[in-house]
Design a binder for these strands. Structure first.
Lengths: 157, 157
DNA sequence: CCAAGAACTCAAGCTCACTTGAAGTACAGT
DNA sequence: ACTGTACTTCAAGTGAGCTTGAGTTCTTGG
């Protein structure tokens, strides 16, 4: 994650500046670094310094979160990108395919739910046997211990 | 939450039966009861007994979760329903309006994201200034301590 | 009547994505 | 030189939605 080899003339940003410009809290940025999502170099006095490109990386992370990816998945995606150059069109297209299908799936599920809901408004049912809302996608039974974050458009799901 | 006053002839279901039929773990059912989402009565030996209508309630909870509601909100919705009769068309229509708009919002957000994504595949950009994906819905800034479920932009400014 | 299995109650643990706090160090401005 | 703000690390806490485990009691079939 060291961002050492860099077109010398760049100037570096402090964590405060990055936090301010990205809208992400400094504590979150440190956390992201722990998680391998972003990198930094240090000053003589051990303070973090970021390249401007880190802002782009952070924006990427945020977009990916909105798509519904967990941080671990986002890290994988970032790792699959060439070290620290701007991604090419084909890098990007590869990634966006995953995103796209995630989004499509989730959108489809929500639309179906909405349609069922509309059906239910008409029928006023809530009857267990008949109602689509109730009987769709039963036994989604996601398994394993630990918290279940969401159903709901969030990572993990 | 006591479901005492009930058309006598009903027979009651054990937690195991409810778990099996609903696909929800017994531990989750106890948790739901703690949270006031479902009710039960007890046998002489202190074991839970459920009405069949509880299955409907659980299905309701699951549908609501898929819509994206938190358990606390679902409880409120359930509390707003008449005690334990089957909801009327107008009860239902009131609730479904909330759901509907939730769904619409989320669907719209995801669709916009998808469209931006498609735009990006074309442009191959990832450039911070220009890319829609990056600059949409910045500073959503949800505040307060604790975990942030969704996308999480802490206001830097 | 007894064993097996199902249920009971707590308390503690888990994941995820962070935040908060304490205690200390660095740097910029006067 | 001094003050104040920004930064550092590390440990622990947060909330949602459950699960797991320990130790105990109920219920049912043979």
């Amino acid at each position: 994650m060291a961002e050492e080899n860099v077109p010398s003339k760049d100037h570096w940003l402090s964590i405060g500046e990055i936090a301010h410009r990205s809208g992400v809290a400094a504590s979150a940025l440190r956390f992201y670094e722990d998680q391998g999502l972003i990198g930094s170099r240090r000053t003589a006095g051990n303070q973090r310094q970021y390249q401007r490109s880190t802002l782009r990386r952070i924006a990427f992370v945020q977009a990916a979160q909105r798509v519904g990816l967990a941080l671990a998945e986002i890290r994988e995606a970032l790792d699959s990108l060439p070290d620290d150059r701007t991604p090419t069109r084909s890098d990007w297209s590869r990634l966006s395919k995953t995103w796209r299908s995630r989004l499509d799936e989730r959108i489809t599920e929500l639309e179906r739910l909405r349609d069922d809901l509309d059906g239910c408004i008409g029928c006023g049912c809530l009857s267990l046997q008949r109602c689509n809302l109730y009987n769709k996608s039963d036994r989604l039974a996601e398994r394993g211990p630990g918290a279940r974050i969401l159903n709901v458009g969030i990572p993990g799901e």
